[in-house]
Structures are given as structure tokens and as C-alpha cells.
């Protein structure tokens, strides 16, 4: 499915969501409560078949977090980007570890570096830093006067 076709299809199914053409792929933005609905639809609809989550990351926009999911379909070779807005005070979002197994490790990394809590994750604990580490270093307001030497 080409990008235009994909946007039309997504607009038809999720009319309340914002779907635009990004630099490479269609980008669908929505709130964190709809994540599981959207993912289930994208993965299980036979003509979409987004079965491969190739990148999962997070961006700190100071007012909120944006979870970014890059999906690919190994059957049709079309891609879509999901941007999910998450509250900064209480960063919680559903885990995709049961849908895409690769998400398990990616989500542990995001929890470690951004402090986003993934609900329903089987083994949510720090992966890169030690358990005693305080704070989430990739957040924009992270300060560490001992370790970080600023240039």
C-alpha cells in the first residue's frame, strides 16, 4: 500500500486522529489511551499487517513525552509512524511487549532513560544503568553535576 493510500485508509478508520504525511512515512498522532486499539488494528488487519516494530523510542518535549513507534510490514513493505502523547507528571503507557516481543527490551531501555512506566510489562527494571541510579538521564531537565562536565 502506498503512503497516500495508507493515509486515506487510516483517516477512514481513525477519523478523530491526526494523520499526516511525514518526511518518509505517514504519521499518526493520538493519546496514550488508544494505543492498544490502534496497534491491534494495524497488526491484525490482513491488508495492513504491520508485524515488525523496528524502532521504539521517546522524545521529551518538556511539556509532555512523545512515544514514537516505527512500524513496518514484512509482507507489504509499507511503514507507519505512531506518535503517542504521554503525560509528563505521570508518564504511563500500555506495554507492547505482548504484541511485539522486541518491545520488551526497548521499553526497558526507555523506562531506564526516560522513566516512562509501561503497564503490563513482564520485567520492568533498569537495563543500562545500575538499580541505585537516581533520575532519568535522557530527560531534558536532568542535571548531574558530578558526572556531566559541560562544554
Amino acid at each position: 500500500m502506498g503512503n497516500e493510500e495508507l493515509i486515506l485508509k487510516l483517516k477512514e478508520v481513525f477519523p478523530e486522529m491526526d494523520c499526516v504525511q511525514g518526511n518518509d512515512w505517514p504519521e499518526l498522532s493520538f493519546g496514550s489511551d488508544r494505543l492498544i486499539d490502534v496497534i491491534t488494528y494495524l497488526k491484525q488487519t490482513p491488508e495492513l499487517a504491520f508485524d515488525y516494530l523496528f524502532c521504539e523510542t521517546c522524545v521529551d518535549w518538556k511539556t509532555h513525552f512523545n512515544m514514537v513507534y516505527h512500524l513496518d510490514s514484512t509482507r507489504y513493505r509499507h511503514n507507519v509512524v505512531l506518535k503517542v502523547k504521554t503525560d509528563r507528571e505521570k508518564p504511563e503507557i500500555a506495554s507492547l511487549a505482548h504484541v511485539y516481543r522486541t518491545a520488551e527490551q526497548h521499553e526497558r531501555e526507555i523506562f531506564d532513560l526516560f522513566g516512562i512506566v509501561f503497564l503490563g510489562h513482564p520485567n520492568l527494571k533498569r537495563i543500562m544503568l545500575t538499580e541505585e541510579w537516581v533520575g532519568y538521564p535522557l530527560r531534558k531537565d536532568y542535571e548531574d553535576p558530578i558526572n556531566i562536565i559541560k562544554l
Partner: peptide
């Protein structure tokens, strides 16, 4: 301003660079 993603094939697999 924007978001850019590039995928390449390294000897170990797919490397993605995502720049915001």
C-alpha cells in the same frame, strides 16, 4: 525543523538513525 529517519544495512543488521 522536523523528524528524519534513515535505515541502513550494517553487517549486523538494520541500523536506524532518528533525528528530531
Amino acid at each position: 525543523k522536523g523528524e528524519f529517519y534513515q535505515r541502513v544495512e550494517t553487517p549486523r543488521g538494520e541500523l536506524g538513525v532518528y533525528i528530531v
